[in-house]
Design a protein around this nucleic acid. Sequence first.
DNA 1: TTCTAAGTGCGAACGGCGTTCGTGTCAAGT
DNA 2: ACTTGACACGAACGCCGTTCGCACTTAGAA
Lengths: 231, 231
Amino acid sequence: MSVPDPPWQQRAARKRSAKRPLDTDVIVRTALELTDREGLDAVSMRRVAQELGTGAASLYAYVRNKSELQELMLDLVIGEVPLPEPDPARWEEQLKQFARDQLRVFTAHPGMAQVVARTPAPTGPNALQVTETMLTLLRGAGLPDRIAAFAVDLLALYPNAIALERTADFALTDGERDERMSQVEDYFAALPAERFPNLLAILPVMMSDEGEERFEFGLELIMRGLRSWVE
Amino acid sequence: MSVPDPPWQQRAARKRSAKRPLDTDVIVRTALELTDREGLDAVSMRRVAQELGTGAASLYAYVRNKSELQELMLDLVIGEVPLPEPDPARWEEQLKQFARDQLRVFTAHPGMAQVVARTPAPTGPNALQVTETMLTLLRGAGLPDRIAAFAVDLLALYPNAIALERTADFALTDGERDERMSQVEDYFAALPAERFPNLLAILPVMMSDEGEERFEFGLELIMRGLRSWVE
DNA sequence: TTCTAAGTGCGAACGGCGTTCGTGTCAAGT
DNA sequence: ACTTGACACGAACGCCGTTCGCACTTAGAA
């Protein structure tokens, strides 16, 4: 080793040590960043590998396949939902806030709602912690076990479904979005009034952009329903 | 035309007339049958074309692209949901039955629930008719327009979300399903009792296979919530 | 009857995908 | 110094959606 390495080997060596060694965590995080930036459809194994300066094949040492990668991403995202300190007196508000936070987090990571839909009953550590906390709140409120078990599903389902709806068109270009919008408008304008009287009567309400009120309505509806089973 | 066509031309002619000429309808129907048999993931343009004895390129004369094909399939499926004759006195039961029928239809066509999730506000003719009927029921029940508009969304969302959950693993082989099942069991069995007391306490209830009761619970919850806004 | 133009059918090709295989590389252990 | 084992990854396989351009059919004009 008395002679220094030739320059091209030095470069290679520096490059190798400069980049963090591959591990499951960086892969998952990189994939998630890519999803946030370009949507879930852009996240291919090749693309993630490229982002890490390597080849697709290298990822398979740390991740069984693409769907496992997505499940790992999912649990990472679920981990971002803040857990409340259960306070039985405020169970309704705490559950509502929980649902709001869930919606916020999944809206912030467009595409992850699709992953939830494909993943029957997420079982990552963070998902379990979320379930445990919700159960604490529901049982603390005096709901029977059976109802609590049903409700925990429902309360996870609802924000996810709304998030799915809101992020469905993330991958569309502005042009496509506009085109779809004007198509829908034309279509509604052309509806025969005698066959769709209610639809037309209610159109202004449906078109008005009160997404947040809509979500809050659903939450309030669920809480009113739950209340009827307390004790 | 005094001389009959040579045999090879006859065969060609028979072949051509024997298979129905391509049109949008057969394409959509074939794609749907394929989905029912093998799941949505198996429905590629090539595969549908193969089923019709032609090449993938031929389909593009009748269908703009794959996602348009899926939207057409979706409206066909929505058309299978039976429409009730609105009877204001029985609005709750009619809405419930509506939701049940929707779940049934989407469970019978595994994969179509995924398409709903990707399609913001389906606008096919059948979807519109469904919306109109639901609005008739909701407004007839005495719900304010604003609430009715929200509720119609919610009542479509819920059966779809459940159908999505139920058909999520359609593409899995039995082996994969079993593997997942036993994985989940092991995982739960290994949970530390002090960190997940509620989860473990409720596990028997969650594991018991009462999918239908679960759906009915959600329906009843929604109806109780709606009732609180009547008049 | 013959010619032509329009429309349909479709093989071939492009660029991308998930995943596997087998070779290459290199550090740690002997 | 040599072996071993873990990691890295280029190349390839068989899919995918979509486009292009050529072959073929056929309806109407001449």
